[in-house]
């Protein structure tokens, strides 16, 4: 099963967390069927990154509460509720919806949100990704 892990973010400020997770994962020995991609612009980068994968894990910085830390999985329904902070209206949620409309989204898309900007938060997100990868390959049987 080809899985693409996509870290979304920009290189400066608290929005770099998604990219940092990709860096953290690069240091681990992941199976060759797993691709790691950095995405700085949901449109077009996210659309590109989703191509050719059987499953995708999208990691992005998000805020549900100022006090929240760490990382967690996000259900697709929750995405619709988050106000986009993208500078031109095409955030991750819309890019994913567009990918789906174009038939480019893989059968399975998992979302991981990192809340907080520290190394511990990035590590927490990386751990969740690794768990997801394990469960995806296990499901494959």
């Amino acid at each position: 099963m080809r899985v693409t892990v996509i870290g979304v973010g920009t290189r400066h400020g608290g929005d770099a967390a998604g990219l940092a997770v990709v860096t953290a994962l690069e240091a681990r020995a992941l199976p060759r069927s797993v691709a790691l991609v950095r995405c700085e612009r949901p449109l077009p980068d996210l659309l590109e990154a989703l191509a050719g994968a059987d499953a995708a894990i999208v990691v992005d910085a998000a805020r549900s509460d100022h006090a929240a830390r760490g990382a967690r999985r996000v259900a697709p329904a929750e995405l619709a509720d988050v106000a986009t902070t993208s500078s031109h209206g095409f955030g991750v949620a819309r890019a994913l919806a567009l990918a789906e409309a174009l038939g480019r989204a893989p059968a399975r898309v998992e979302l991981v949100a990192i809340e907080g900007e520290g190394d511990a938060d990035v590590e927490a997100a990386a751990r969740i990704v690794v768990e997801l990868l394990a469960s995806l390959t296990a499901a494959e049987g």
Binding site: R94, A97, L98, A101, L102, G103
Partner: peptide, 9 residues
């Protein structure tokens, strides 16, 4: 545009 993508892919 999401709707457009569905109808005029």
């Amino acid at each position: 545009g999401i709707e457009i993508a569905r109808i005029h892919r």
